[in-house]
């Protein structure tokens, strides 16, 4: 599990790992390209993300879980009904 992070007033954020600085247009083009790269049998794109875990705010990186099976779940939002 990831390291605990210090929480200030700003929302902690994460994102894809290894991203370089690009103009917005280039970014959009790349995101579209990467979308098509989600394929079974291919590597899961690595990322970091802030997280809440058992009373602590931590930073999680997907690649820390190499060697284990991972279920990565997305959902529409907290306090949604299903």
């Amino acid at each position: 599990m990831g390291e605990e992070i210090k929480v200030g007033c700003a929302r902690p954020t994460g994102g894809p790992v290894g991203e370089t600085v690009q103009t917005q247009e280039e970014k959009t083009a790349i995101v579209k390209e990467v979308k098509a790269m989600i394929t079974v049998g291919k590597k899961a794109p690595d990322f970091t993300a802030p997280a809440y875990h058992k009373g602590k705010f931590i930073s999680v990186q997907l690649s820390e879980y190499l060697g284990k099976w991972v279920i990565l779940c997305f959902y529409p939002g907290d306090f949604t009904f299903v």
């Binding site: 049998g41 590597k43 190499l66 779940c73």
Partner: peptide, 14 residues
């Protein structure tokens, strides 16, 4: 985000 669920193996492969 939609309800997406990804199974990732110990090698990091989806």
């Amino acid at each position: 985000e939609a309800r997406g669920r990804f199974l990732i193996d110990p090698d990091g492969v989806i």
